[in-house]
Write a protein that binds this DNA or RNA. Structure first.
Length: 424
RNA sequence: GGAGAGAUGGCAGAGUGGUCGAACGCGGCGGUCUUGAAAACCGUUGACCGUGUGAGCGGUCCGGGGGUUCGAAUCCCUCUCUCUCCGCCA
C-alpha cells in the first residue's frame, strides 16, 4: 500500500511511475487527492467541536463539585447540539476515510527506476546467464516419465488421495526432497539467516499484511470454519512476524529463512504448464526474508540475488536471471529478479525463484517501522524476500538434465544430504 | 467439547464515572559518580491524525464494534482472542 501522504504530495509522480506497470492510476489518484482534502476539512471541524465539548465537560465537572447545579445544567444545554454535529461529522469522516482506503489499496507498488519497460514476459531483461545447456543422450525423457520409470514420484496416487497437483514422493524421491530442504536451509544459515519454523496457516490480518488479501483471495486455500488461510509461501508468516512492530534500527537488516510447504489454488492455470512438477497445488520451498533500512535495501537485494545464484550454481544447473519488466511484475513489488533454470528434456526455462524488494509497500500495510536516530521519528522499513529455493522445478531440471543411461546423477553437493549418488 | 477467569503503554501491573494518556516497578535513553564499566542516585521515556516555517496547539486511542452520560479505561450490550481446570488426543 502506497503511503497516503506520498500520494497527496506527489500525484503526478505516482501516475507517471505506474504507467510502467501498465496501470492507469490517474482516476484513482485524482479521487484520492480530492477526497483527502475533504477528509481533512471534516477532521478540522470535528476536532474543533470535540475541543469545545471537552472544555464544557470539564467545566460541568468543576461546577458540580462546587455544588453549582444551576450553572452546570445551563452549561449542559449547549452540548446536545454539539453532540449531533460531532456524530454526523464522525460518520462522514469514517465514510470518506474508508473510501480513500479502498482506493489506496487498488494502487500497485511503484516500480523502481531499474525496471525495464514492457508488457509481457518476452520484455523481461536477461541480466545474467550461467552454465551450458546440456546435450542429453538419445531417448531422453521429461521428468514426469523419469519419475514413473524410477518410481520416485507418483502423481496418480496423489490424485487418488487428494487431487491433481498433490504428488506423492517415494523412496529416493522423498529423500532428495528432504536433502534439498536441508541443503537450502544450511546455505541460508551460512549466509546469516535465522531459521524460522512458522505456522502453515495464517489469519486474515496476516493475509492483508503481505498483500494476499483482499486482491488475491481466490489463490489461497481458505479454511472457512476457522477463517484461516493455508500459506501460499513462508513469506506470509515470516514477514508478519514483524507486523505492528517498531524494530530497533540496530537490528537491521533482520534476516530470516524458513522452510515450508506452500499451498496454491492456481485457479486459471491449465495445459502443458501444469504437467508433472511444473505447477502444483502443494510444494516445498525455502524462503529468505529481510527487513531492511531504506538506505541499503537495494544492496541487500543484490546480496539475496547472489545468494540464490550460488545455490543454483552449486546444484550445477544452467540458469539465467531476469529483471522483470513493468508489465510482468507483481502488484506489491518495486523490483523483481526471477531465476530460471533450463529443463533440458522439456527444452524450456522454468522459474525457480523470484527475489523482490517491496520497499515500504508491505511495511505500510504491516505498520512495520523503525525509529530514525536523527529525527526520533518512526519510519517505514523495507521488506524483501526471495525463494531460495522452490523445490519442484529444481527437482524437475535435476532429473531431466542429469539423466544418463545408468540412471539420474545426483548433484555432488547433495550427495552428503541424500546418502546416494544415483537414482536408478 | 464442558466450566471458569481475563484482555490496560516495550514488558510487568495498579486504576471501577470527572485535571487519567493513565500510578509503582522493570527495560530503554540522558546525566552525576568512575581511568572505564557495574552499582547507586537524578532526570527522561507511547502511537496515530490534523494544523503551523517552528516552539506549539487541537483531536483520537486502555482487545474490536455499539450504547448510557455534560463526561467512560471505569457502567451496559455484543463480538473476537487469550489463559486456567476437566475431558479427548499427536
Amino acid at each position: 500500500m502506497l503511503n497516503l501522504k506520498f500520494i497527496q504530495e506527489n500525484p503526478e509522480l505516482v501516475i507517471a511511475k505506474l504507467k510502467k506497470k501498465n496501470f492507469d492510476a490517474s482516476a484513482i489518484v485524482l479521487q484520492i487527492t480530492s477526497l483527502s482534502v475533504k477528509k481533512n476539512e471534516i477532521q478540522a471541524s470535528a476536532d474543533n467541536f470535540k475541543a469545545e465539548m471537552n472544555k464544557i465537560s470539564k467545566e460541568v465537572g468543576l461546577l458540580m463539585r462546587e455544588g453549582k447545579k444551576e450553572e452546570a445544567n445551563a452549561a449542559k444545554k449547549r452540548t446536545s447540539e454539539l453532540k449531533d454535529s460531532i456524530k454526523q461529522l464522525d460518520e462522514d469522516f469514517a465514510q470518506i476515510d474508508k473510501e480513500v482506503f479502498n482506493l489506496q489499496v487498488l494502487l500497485p507498488n511503484l516500480p523502481s527506476d531499474l525496471v525495464p519497460e514492457g508488457r509481457t514476459p518476452e520484455d523481461n531483461m536477461v541480466v545474467r546467464s550461467f552454465g551450458e545447456i546440456p546435450v542429453l543422450p538419445e531417448n531422453s525423457i521429461p521428468h514426469w516419465e523419469l519419475a514413473k520409470k524410477y518410481d520416485i514420484i507418483d502423481f496418480e496416487l496423489g490424485v487418488k488421495i487428494t487431487g491433481a497437483g498433490f504428488p506423492v514422493y517415494k523412496g529416493k524421491g522423498a529423500r532428495i526432497q528432504r536433502a534439498l530442504i536441508s541443503f537450502f536451509l544450511d546455505e541460508a544459515r551460512d549466509s546469516g539467516y535465522l531459521e524460522i519454523q512458522p505456522p502453515l496457516m495464517v489469519n486474515e490480518d496476516s493475509g492483508f499484511g503481505t498483500g494476499q488479501l483482499p486482491d488475491k483471495e481466490g489463490q489461497m486455500y481458505h479454511a472457512t470454519e476457522d477463517n484461516l488461510y493455508l500459506i501460499p509461501t513462508a513469506e506470509v508468516p515470516v514477514t508478519n512476524l514483524y507486523r505492528d512492530v517498531i524494530v530497533d534500527v540496530k537490528d537491521l537488516p533482520i534476516k530470516n529463512t524458513a522452510y515450508s510447504a506452500c499451498f496454491r489454488r492456481e485457479a486459471g492455470s491449465y495445459g502443458k504448464d501444469v504437467r508433472g512438477l511444473n505447477r502444483l497445488h502443494q510444494f516445498d520451498k525455502v524462503e529468505i526474508v529481510q527487513i531492511a533500512h531504506p538506505d541499503n535495501s537495494y544492496e541487500l537485494l543484490d546480496e539475496m540475488v547472489a545468494h540464490v545464484a550460488g545455490l543454483v550454481e552449486k546444484l550445477e544447473l544452467p540458469y539465467r536471471i531476469l529483471r522483470l519488466c513493468g508489465g510482468d511484475m507483481s502488484f506489491t513489488s518495486a523490483l523483481t529478479y526471477d531465476f530460471e533454470v533450463f529443463s533440458a528434456a522439456q527444452e524450456k526455462w522454468l522459474e525457480v525463484s523470484s527475489v523482490s524488494n517491496f520497499e515500504s509497500f508491505q511495511a505500510n500495510r504491516l505498520k512495520l517501522r523503525f525509529r530514525d536516530e536523527a529525527t526520533k521519528k518512526t519510519v517505514l522499513a523495507h521488506t524483501l524476500n526471495g525463494s531460495a529455493l522452490a523445490l519442484p522445478r529444481i527437482l524437475a531440471s535435476i532429473l531431466e538434465n542429469n539423466q544418463t543411461p545408468e540412471g539420474i546423477r545426483v548433484p555432488k553437493v547433495l550427495v552428503p544430504y541424500c546418502g546416494f549418488e544415483m537414482i536408478d
